[in-house]
């Protein structure tokens, strides 16, 4: 083993220790965010519909990963929070809900099903203060909500854009980003809660018989 005569790095063990510390420092450059999973119960009147929820692995296991030049690499785990907010909302928005494994199986798994709701994340973007030249972190999430009839017919694919932002007062970068993502998810939940029954194709397909009564009450 090569030694350095001034004695600074004479011991192989010391080199190893420095290499380990460097490796740990590089690993520490990554930012990992897991969005919290507690969402408030929506204060809305239930629609007279029984919904099957199709929560596939891409939705409930969604992790946004991004490598950024001049910044740390980020990983934002949205999946568990996705599952919680959609279940929490669906429990209040619909008369009954149940998880289903596919659109085709929905009727077998939930004989009284009126519709199948399949949420998906289309895109996730975020910005940090250094990038946006502001003092806040921001997260954009674009969801697609596919709504099917029990026979498998696609009624609509509703696009919902959600936004959340957070200051960094007293928070680490990861904490501020988590907060912004959480607020974006609440924004999505609020949009679905207040807008689902107003979607024209949904009204026509599922709420026609009680349209006037239901929409007036939920407005």
């Amino acid at each position: 083993m090569e030694t350095i005569s001034n004695g600074d790095l004479r011991l192989p063990g010391r080199r190893l220790a420095i290499a380990v510390l460097l490796a740990l420092a590089v690993a520490g450059c990554g930012g990992e965010v897991v969005v919290r999973q507690t969402f408030p119960a929506a204060l809305v009147q239930s629609l007279p519909l029984r919904a099957g929820l199709l929560l596939d692995e891409t939705f409930v296991g969604y992790v946004h990963r991004e490598e950024r030049k001049g910044d740390r690499d980020w990983s934002i785990a949205l999946g568990d929070a996705n599952r919680e907010w959609i279940r929490s909302l669906a429990d209040r928005l619909f008369a009954a809900t149940q998880d289903v494994t596919s659109v085709a199986n929905a009727r077998n798994e939930m004989p009284t099903v009126d519709l199948v709701l399949q949420p998906a994340i289309d895109t996730v973007e975020f910005s940090v203060p250094r990038q946006s030249a502001t003092d806040h972190y921001a997260v954009w999430i674009r969801y697609n909500f596919s709504v099917y009839k029990p026979d498998g017919e696609l009624v609509t694919r509703w696009r919902v854009s959600a936004y959340g932002q957070s200051g960094d007062e007293g928070l680490s970068a990861a904490e501020a980003l988590e907060r912004a993502a959480y607020i974006a998810m609440r924004d999505a939940a609020a949009t679905v809660a207040t807008g689902f029954a107003r979607q024209k194709k949904i009204k026509t397909a599922f709420l026609q018989s009680s349209l006037d009564e239901t929409v007036e009450q939920s407005d």
Binding site: F39, P40, A41, R186, D187, A189, A190
Partner: peptide, 9 residues
């Protein structure tokens, strides 16, 4: 308590 009526949007 008032969710979703006092979200930013």
């Amino acid at each position: 308590d008032l969710f979703p009526w006092f979200e930013p949007r």
